[in-house]
Simulated assay, not measured.
Amino acid sequence: MQTQRFLISFVSLASFLINPRVCSPTCGFPAIFNFGDSNSDTGGLSAAFGQAPYPNGQTFFHSPSGRFSDGRLIVDFIAEELGLPYLNAFLDSIGSNFSHGANFATAGSTVRPPNTTISQSGVSPISLDVQLVQFSDFFTRSQLIRNRGGVFKQLLPRKEYFSQALYTFDIGQNDLTAGLKLNMTTDQIKAYIPDVLDQLSDAIRKVYMKGGRRFWIHNTAPIGCLPYVLDRFPVPASQIDSHGCAIPRNEIARYFNSELKTRVIGLRKELSKAAITYVDVYSIKLTLITQARKLGISNQTNNR
Rank of each mutant, 00 (worst) to 15 (best):
263 R>M: 11
292 A>K: 08
258 S>G: 15
172 G>F: 06
44 G>V: 00
119 S>N: 12
192 Y>Q: 05
272 S>I: 04
245 C>H: 12
274 A>M: 07
94 I>S: 14
16 F>G: 13
29 F>C: 14
160 E>L: 09
163 S>L: 11
210 K>W: 06
255 Y>T: 06
233 F>T: 06
276 I>R: 06
117 T>G: 15
98 F>N: 13
209 M>T: 07
11 V>S: 00
166 L>Y: 05
235 V>D: 08
284 I>W: 03
212 G>K: 02
138 F>Q: 02
35 F>H: 01
111 V>P: 01
190 K>T: 00
101 G>T: 01
279 V>I: 07
99 S>T: 10
9 S>Q: 10
66 G>Q: 03
131 Q>H: 00
96 S>F: 03
280 D>F: 05
74 I>W: 00
17 L>D: 08
110 T>A: 07
73 L>M: 12
258 S>A: 12
258 S>K: 08
190 K>S: 06
160 E>I: 04
168 T>L: 15
248 P>W: 05
299 N>E: 01
246 A>Q: 11
246 A>M: 09
287 T>C: 15
141 R>L: 15
297 I>V: 08
118 I>Y: 08
203 A>I: 01
83 G>L: 08
148 R>H: 12
18 I>M: 11
302 N>Q: 10
136 S>R: 14
77 F>E: 00
288 L>P: 06
192 Y>G: 09
140 T>C: 05
222 P>H: 01
187 D>A: 15
22 V>A: 11
283 S>W: 00
154 Q>T: 14
197 L>Q: 14
249 R>F: 00
72 R>P: 03
30 P>C: 14
17 L>K: 12
129 D>I: 06
225 C>G: 07
84 L>V: 02
228 Y>F: 04
290 T>R: 13
58 Q>L: 13
35 F>P: 02
281 V>G: 03
64 P>E: 04
246 A>E: 09
232 R>E: 11
64 P>T: 04
290 T>K: 13
265 I>D: 09
7 L>R: 06
214 R>C: 15
298 S>V: 00
211 G>W: 05
37 D>V: 12
3 T>L: 10
27 C>H: 03
29 F>T: 07
181 K>L: 07
295 L>K: 02
75 V>E: 00
22 V>M: 08
48 A>Q: 04
111 V>E: 03
253 A>C: 07
300 Q>H: 01
129 D>E: 10
294 K>W: 01
155 L>S: 12
204 I>P: 01
2 Q>G: 05
59 T>Y: 06
17 L>I: 01
7 L>F: 08
40 S>M: 10
134 Q>F: 03
115 N>M: 13
278 Y>R: 04
242 S>I: 03
32 I>S: 06
239 Q>C: 15
6 F>M: 13
173 Q>Y: 05
67 R>S: 05
55 P>L: 11
115 N>C: 12
44 G>L: 05
90 F>E: 02
197 L>M: 14
